[in-house]
């Protein structure tokens, strides 16, 4: 599948990545080659094969419903750029 630069720009925007014009054209080639490989995989007949949700042949372990964590707000907030009244502050979000 041949990608266009607009696809790369959109993917970068969704992932909040800053991509320069030079980089963008490079990514078009790189990502197109990855997608070619996916196309190749898709040519395989997978009729009757269960989609794989995880490469490990194991199932999820469950934990008992117990509160095991203590309040570590101070430690965690030490690396936050801005806090007030126990809240993390972020650039204003407008709905």
């Amino acid at each position: 599948m041949a990608l266009e630069e607009s696809h790369v720009r959109r993917a970068a925007h969704l992932a909040r990545l800053a991509v320069s014009d030079d980089q963008a054209s490079g990514f078009v080639d790189d990502l197109s080659r990855i997608l070619d490989m996916v196309d190749q995989l898709q040519s395989l007949d997978t009729e009757g094969v269960m989609p794989l949700a995880h490469p490990l042949d194991a199932t999820q372990r469950l934990r008992a419903d117990e509160v095991t964590e203590t309040n570590q707000r101070e430690t965690f907030q030490r690396c936050a750029p801005a806090v007030e009244n126990g809240l993390y502050l972020v650039p204003r979000v407008v709905e």
Binding site: N85, G86, L87, Y88, L89, V90, P91, R92, V93
Partner: peptide
């Protein structure tokens, strides 16, 4: 909050 938004997680 001085033009910022507060987050409670």
């Amino acid at each position: 909050f001085h033009g910022m938004t507060g987050i409670d997680l």
